[in-house]
Every structure is written in C-alpha cells, then in structure tokens.
C-alpha cells in the first residue's frame, strides 16, 4: 500500500467518530458553511459608491506607505511616470506588453526588459523598476491583485526595488469577496499558476518589531491609476 492510501485510511478510520461543531454546544450543523453565504457581512465595511471606495483605497494605500496617484488621463499618467524616472534616475526597467503598459511605457524612452518573453533574471535584478498591470485594486484592504498572466510573470512585481502598477479606474473592486469572484469569473477554467494579493511594499518587523520597508521585495510600490 502506498503512503497515500495509508494516510487516507487512517483519516477515514479517525473520522468514524464525529466531532462537535465549535461554538454550537453540541446542537446542530454549521449553518454558515453553505457555499452561498458570503463573508462580506462580517468583514470591514466598504462604502457603496465608487467614490467612497476610491477614497478608501487611497486611505489604505497611504497607511501602507504605498504611493497611490490618481489621474484624469493617460497623458497625466505618462507625465507622472516620467517624473518618477527622472527623480530616481532609472536606467533600465522591466515590463511586459499589455494595453496600459504599451500605452504608457514607450514615453520613458528607456531600455525595457520584457518579462512576458523568456528573459534572464540577472538582467531583471539589475532593473531599477518593474512596471506591470494588475487584475484589480481592492478598496477594502488597499491591495493590488496580480497574476503571473496579467503582470508579466512571477518575478517582475517582486524582484526590482520599485514596483510600479498601472491600473484603470474601473479595475477598482469593493472587497475581498468581490476580488475572488472576479478571479473565478476570469480564470476558473485555467488559473494562472501564481495569483498574488500585494498589500503595500515589502516589509519586515523582525528586528525589535520595528517596521522596515523593503525586506526582500520592493521598497517602493507606486500605483498609477487613470
């Protein structure tokens, strides 16, 4: 018998004796375990209107020390990314092809390492920034949702010291349940092999519980939304 069968066999044997459902004091079955009930009702409140949600995202991003920049047009976004380039003296950036990146990145006039084609990670490591799109922005938590399909692979959003996200306003979703619903709707037949909820720039508190940004991932996270 394989270890798989051994382990499953022991589990089945063990489960012959039932265990009480927590918190119900021996009465009944868990009502809320139905897949239809959403955890939304317990989670932190998110406003109903788009403007409230946008304001909440901005507030969360600020708390997380992410730089959230909101613009009216692609032109303004181009200016913003150019000024980042000048301020940080970028020499080389990583990126991928997509509607937003293709519209914005050429303005940088910098060598671009494409990570949606076979690439050398040493070269990506040498980039000053990684510029990617995303799947959604989540108002409730100030999170950027990316997948390796939407955001140029697994490493682009975490290896360079600065991660710049390009997003459209209509990519904002209210909360985590909405984000999971979106993932299901978009990918259920074939999920990308990596899905990441990025909530602020990389950080650690491992030295005296004092927060330091940029532990192993990016020190900076800029979200350019237009």
């Amino acid at each position: 018998m394989s270890e798989r069968e051994n382990i499953l066999g022991r589990i089945r044997e063990a489960l012959k004796v039932g265990a009480l459902v927590p918190g119900l004091h021996g009465h009944g079955q868990p009502a809320s375990a139905s897949p239809l009930s959403s955890p939304r009702q317990w989670l932190p409140k998110v406003g109903d209107s788009f403007d409230e949600q946008l304001a909440l995202f901005a507030k969360n991003a600020a708390e997380l020390k992410a730089d959230f920049q909101l613009f009216k047009s692609a032109d303004e976004a181009r200016q913003a990314i150019n000024s980042l380039r000048d301020k940080e003296k970028w020499q080389r950036v990583g990126g991928h092809s997509g509607d937003l990146t293709d519209a914005i990145c050429p303005t940088l006039n910098l060598p671009l390492l494409r990570t949606d084609r076979p690439y050398d990670v040493h070269e990506l490591e040498a980039c000053d920034a990684g510029i990617s799109e995303c799947d959604a922005l989540i108002a409730q938590t100030g999170t950027v949702l990316v997948t390796n399909r939407s955001a140029g692979g697994r490493a682009l959003s975490v290896l360079p010291p600065h991660h710049v996200v390009l997003a459209r306003r209509d990519q904002l979703v209210a909360d985590l349940p909405a984000a999971f619903a979106l993932l299901q709707q978009r990918y259920a037949t074939n999920y990308p092999s990596m899905i990441s909820f990025i909530t602020g720039p990389s950080r650690t508190g491992d030295i005296e519980r004092i927060m330091v940004l940029g532990a192993h991932g990016p020190k900076k996270l800029t979200i350019i939304c237009f």
Partner: peptide, 23 residues
C-alpha cells in the same frame, strides 16, 4: 500581526505552465 492583510498573500497552483515565462 495586527495588519489588515499581510503584504503578500500568494496562491500557487502549479509549476510554470505552457506560455509562462518564469517560475
């Protein structure tokens, strides 16, 4: 940790799939 969400929460469902460039 008292955070609203930890910085990275990442789901992995396989090794590099056809068409993916890293991993």
């Amino acid at each position: 940790t008292g955070q609203q969400l930890t910085c990275y929460n990442t789901l992995y469902s396989g090794p590099r799939q056809p068409g993916e460039t890293d991993g």
